[in-house]
Design a binder for these strands. Structure first.
Lengths: 255, 255
DNA sequence: TCTTATTTGTTCGTATGTATT
DNA sequence: GAATACATACGAACAAATAAG
């Protein structure tokens, strides 16, 4: 590979492979040529090839497994419509259990999710968001792990004051039709206002492993808070999703 | 450095340096020890040190200049409050020209922005978003480059149908008090509803250079659309910001 | 189950180039 | 111009995961 000075070889190689992927030469599910093969084909060293592939990994374009190779990813971009996902119609459409189900079904994929419910001592940040005292086991955690076509796409622990949730379906794994938002309504804690804070960061090891994320790939973290008309925060959800898989939609009236 | 097998040396080293930064051992503005120095101190090869530093760069923690070293960044996280930034009060507070000015001032920093106005043929995506025919120079582009304390923090070209903007202050570099949203109001195209789509991606070369971004660092791209009560899209803004510098806030009533 | 070939992950030592001071 | 510091690249080697027999 002839090297044009301003652009490094590994970057040029990454560009070339990316083009090949986008042109369909390497379709989703196929593997790229092995590193030794590309070493020869492009006349560069193996570390250089490895570094080029690392770029594509960080972009979410390929998915590498040792002993197998670099597999081209299918890239179903999932749209999360924040505004409509908390409307009753969207939550209960097609018999969906909550917003996520409808979201994935709309993209023609099959949703699945696990929920683990437990009584926990919330982190200071969560306690603060809920207006609860710190360091006390006063919160129900609903740890949801979500999949689309069996691919992990979201990890989202929700936190609810135990005072509200205990003894109700909010503290059960199956939250029933319409998801927990519908349960809040029935319990007299209808969510009247939503706020969300969006940040991009690197995943921690646990998240990286669960979401099967490549090195260098960022996640989007959404702190989602549901408020009653009285201004009480009744639910905080810390949603963690692979950045390359999702697009977020928001819409609101200008007052 | 003794190597624990499951975690690579360069990752361990990155962790160590990160901790040192967070503990204040290397305060913002200071430089890390040089690579040869760390090579010796941690007893690893220089490429390994380089790779560890690359992680910190991608995280936005340090900023590397050849011939100088790795400089620890100050990390002022700027909050972009999407809901309130289009309210008149916020836009015109402190004599601010538009939402951005107020946003930066609120963080105790000094805002500055350049605007270049030109008549352009919009990309298909922009034309589509505005409901205009493609391939025709029918759009006013307001290319804004924004700075906080003279650090580039945002690149945001706005697109307005030429039919609306031409001959008005919308087509001038200085959009006047309250920013262009106020001008739309005066022209009878008050924005009644906002939609935003958020995506995370790698910056292109131009963006990377302007925003002084390190290798591997993602940007947030926000497609912002302003709609009139009649449902006409009168403004599309493609906002590009370094992901590590910003947090986005949204809030809306549940209907 | 064990073995072997394949493939990627990581690291080293070394060398050269380029930007800055 | 010289010294310093990072950027990139090569070749080699061994480790670890996987697949096939």
């Amino acid at each position: 590979m002839p090297l044009e000075s301003p652009r490094s070889q590994y970057r040029q190689l990454a560009d070339q492979i990316r083009s090949a992927i986008e042109s369909g030469e390497y379709p989703p599910g196929s593997t790229l040529p092995s590193e030794p093969e590309m070493t020869e084909r492009y006349d560069v060293s193996r570390p250089t090839v490895n570094r080029a592939v690392a770029i594509l990994r960080a972009e979410g374009l390929v998915h590498v497994r040792r002993g197998v190779g670099a597999i081209v990813r299918e890239l179903p971009v999932i749209t999360r419509d924040a505004t409509s996902r908390y409307e009753k119609a969207a939550r209960e459409a097609n018999g969906s259990h909550g917003a996520f189900d409808g979201e994935i079904r709309r993209h023609g994929m099959v949703p699945r999710s696990d929920v683990e419910v437990s009584l926990v001592t919330p982190s200071p940040a969560v306690a603060d968001a809920l207006g609860l005292p710190e360091g006390v086991p006063n919160t129900i955690q609903r740890m949801r792990r979500m999949y689309a076509n069996d691919i992990p796409v979201q990890m989202a622990p929700s936190y609810i004051p135990a005072e509200i949730a205990e003894g109700t379906q909010l503290a059960e794994a199956d939250s029933g039709p319409g998801g927990i938002v519908s349960r809040f309504e029935e319990l007299g804690y209808a969510q009247a206002r939503i706020t969300e804070t969006v940040r991009v960061r690197r995943p921690d090891e646990r998240e990286r492993r669960f979401l099967r994320m490549e090195d260098g790939q960022p996640v989007i973290e959404i702190w989602h808070t549901g408020w009653t008309t009285e201004g009480r925060a009744v639910e905080v959800c810390v949603c963690c999703i692979p950045a390359h898989l999702w697009a977020l939609n928001y819409g609101w009236p200008v007052s």
